[in-house]
Simulated assay, not measured.
Amino acid sequence: MKNFALTGLAGYIAPRHLKAIEDTGNRLVAAVDPHDSVGIIDSYFPKASFFTEVERFDRHLEKIRREGNGEAIDYMTICSPNHLHDAHIRLAMRVGADALCEKPLVLNPWNLDVLQELEEEYGQRVWTILQLRVHPSLIELKKKIDAEKSEKRHKIRLSYITSRGTWYHYSWKGNEEQSGGIGTNIGIHFFDMLMWLFGPAQNMELYVREKNRMGGFLELPNADVEWFLSLEPEDIPNNADDSQRTFRSINVDGDELEFSGGFTDLHTRVYEETLKGNGFGIDDARPSIELVHKLRTMPITENPKGIVHPSIQNLK
């Protein structure tokens, strides 16, 4: 049994990590969040220590490390806001733990270089959550692509719409300096997935960059990709369920890849692989972090073919 600590306990994604820690037969010994709406912990680890100040959390973890009574943490799960990830990763290594961090690992590519140096210095590992790589449908697609003998170029259309209300823009998620913006905050898993399937980005164009929408074109070694991200409920296709607030679509060579289901236990699967030493590290995360950083800073180009927005309209 491994001991975990967790940062960002009050956040949206923390329950998936609590479940994964429990499902893999491990335990949470301490958690921190500046907000105290963390009653969810009672369903998993009611005896875990809880702090609202990271300084006291840090002191507690150092204390139990030095006591040597079996309470010291082995892993720190990081669910805090994106701009705090690298600081909390450094905290994990200082107290002798591996870091297991939600996406994105960091906001800027150069921070990855420092973390790799710290891995060597402390003898700890930095892991991240790239859960689409363990989705059964996508694993089958990768096997099919890897088995192809021809040099076929695939035509991909990716659409991800996840409706968000007014609150979103008043939270850290709506602050680009803290979240990295829509491409980083909601798109990074999909960019990682695309490059995992079809190879690293060779060329890219950006056609739409709004507060709530982003879309463009990616040229990969084995695929041409039209992609669109949105937080706007009006972009949900008309043929979707009226109650549906999230829409995911990957169209590969004209065929829809069914992967809307199967998301429930992906974090647990990533935990299982990480605990076996087969998780996703800094080198796995680097290509998508470099890509979304470029998307935040590159100029908008003309869209003469009318792709991206029309691709969404065609789904309606």
Rank of each mutant, 00 (worst) to 15 (best):
A5Q: 09
L6D: 08
G8K: 02
L9D: 07
A10E: 04
Y12T: 12
I13S: 09
H17N: 04
I21M: 01
E22Q: 15
N26G: 02
N26L: 01
L28T: 03
V29G: 03
A30G: 07
A31M: 06
D33W: 01
I40Y: 10
I40P: 11
I40K: 14
D42T: 11
S43C: 06
Y44R: 04
P46W: 11
A48N: 08
F50K: 10
F51L: 09
E53V: 10
R59G: 13
L61E: 11
R65L: 02
R65V: 00
E67V: 06
G68T: 10
G70F: 04
G70C: 04
G70T: 08
I73G: 06
C79R: 01
S80P: 00
P81Q: 09
L84Y: 06
H88S: 04
M93T: 05
R94T: 15
A99V: 00
C101T: 15
L105K: 02
L107V: 11
L115R: 09
L115P: 02
L115N: 03
E121V: 12
E121P: 06
G123D: 14
G123M: 13
W127S: 08
T128Y: 03
I129P: 03
L132C: 05
R133P: 03
V134A: 13
V134H: 14
H135V: 06
L141E: 08
K142A: 13
K142P: 05
K143G: 14
I145H: 02
E148M: 08
E151W: 11
K152P: 13
R153E: 13
H154C: 14
K155C: 08
K155W: 11
I156E: 05
T162W: 12
S163M: 12
Y168H: 15
S179T: 03
I182K: 09
T184D: 08
T184V: 03
N185T: 07
I186F: 12
I188N: 12
H189N: 15
D192W: 11
F198R: 03
F198L: 06
P200N: 12
A201P: 00
Q202L: 08
N203A: 12
Y207M: 07
N212C: 10
L218P: 02
P221Q: 01
N222D: 04
D224C: 12
L229I: 14
S230E: 05
L231S: 06
P233G: 06
P233A: 15
E234Y: 05
D235Y: 06
N238W: 10
N238M: 14
A240L: 11
D241L: 08
S243L: 10
F247H: 11
R248S: 14
S249G: 05
N251K: 15
D253G: 05
G254N: 08
D255G: 08
E256P: 04
E258A: 15
F259Y: 15
G262K: 14
T264G: 03
L266T: 13
H267M: 12
T268K: 09
R269Y: 07
R269I: 01
E272P: 00
E273C: 01
L275M: 07
K276R: 09
G277A: 05
F280G: 02
G281T: 02
G281A: 00
I282K: 06
E290D: 07
K294P: 00
L295W: 09
L295R: 05
L295I: 15
T297Q: 00
M298L: 04
G306R: 10
I307A: 13
V308Y: 09
H309V: 14
S311T: 13
L315W: 04
